[in-house]
Design a protein around this nucleic acid. Structure first.
Lengths: 154, 154
DNA sequence: ATACGCTTGTTGAGCTTTCAATCATCGGCG
DNA sequence: CGCCGATGATTGAAAGCTCAACAAGCGTAT
């Protein structure tokens, strides 16, 4: 027996659908316009830039960006064509590959970051009260606890 | 001068990113597995099923599903191949096209709906307190007011 | 050692989305 | 009427994603 959504839940669900899609699309389009890359690629560069020596194993990078391995492989291949990332063999595991952020990649990221952060602020944080920001985090964490319980927190 | 995110905002933003992507991916995969279509297509069928005579102008359908016209054209073409939707000329505007939900499309939707609603409940509503559900709606509406001010509410 | 199952990462095909270009029609205005 | 900018919808190509299949290396047990 299906537990259908009542009127209120329906509206909440649709509001969430539209809002998160609108936010996503907006940021993605801004990033594409200003930095020439989709948000998924931007995230890869961000994670690499934070890693020691700016390099990460492919599988760790996949997890950090909540991406499938296949998606990441394709993405890194393309980032490599741009000269923003390069690959190295992993010294401790001959199966492994390390993705390394190049200097050029770092520069592209640095240039893109300003505009993107401004976008996140303008389109999200500036629209919410401080209480709502806290609430959003708690809600997101509740969802994550259920959907992806064992994840690294940061 | 860029207004960077502080530690707390950073964590909130990343939690939101991961959570909404995880939710999205999960529902999308479930729908693909159980109904053989991505969520975007499911949404098209839903909107058509709610419209008078189960038909809508392409442009209205695009707006309702927050889709570009191009995307919708491609999507409807594919839904038409499946026999779930058909097209009619618009009687009042010779440029217009109506997308119409077929009986078969309605049946496919009806079959898919049970599982999908259950998914939305399991992965979202069941994880939140009643207060959080209210909060999520208010947050989503605040985002929408900013990103898509003139939209239809339902 | 060898055999086994498991993990890592890549690949190619097929599908969806995006973007820009295109075509037809509408509606107003001279 | 005839022109013209705006609107409705489609198209094709390029880009990204998913899925299943694969190859190679790991670790353990025998």
């Amino acid at each position: 027996m299906t537990r259908w959504l009542n009127e209120d839940e329906q509206r909440t669900w649709r509001a969430f659908l539209h809002a998160s899609r609108a936010l996503w699309d907006t940021l993605d389009r801004e990033l594409q316009r200003d930095a020439g890359m989709p948000h998924a690629y931007y995230e890869i560069l961000v994670r690499l830039s934070e890693a020691p020596e700016r390099k990460l194993r492919m599988s760790d990078l996949a997890e950090a960006t909540s991406s499938s391995r296949s998606r990441l492989s394709h993405a890194v291949a393309r980032l490599e064509e741009h000269g923003w990332v390069s690959r190295e063999d992993c010294p401790t595991d001959r199966r492994g590959q390390l993705a390394v952020l190049t200097d050029q990649g770092f520069q592209v990221l640095a240039d893109a970051a300003h505009g993107h952060v401004e976008g996140v602020r303008t389109h999200l944080f500036d629209q919410l009260t401080p209480e709502q920001v806290v609430q959003l985090r708690q809600i997101s964490e509740a969802m994550l606890d259920h959907l992806d319980p064992g994840r690294a927190l940061y």
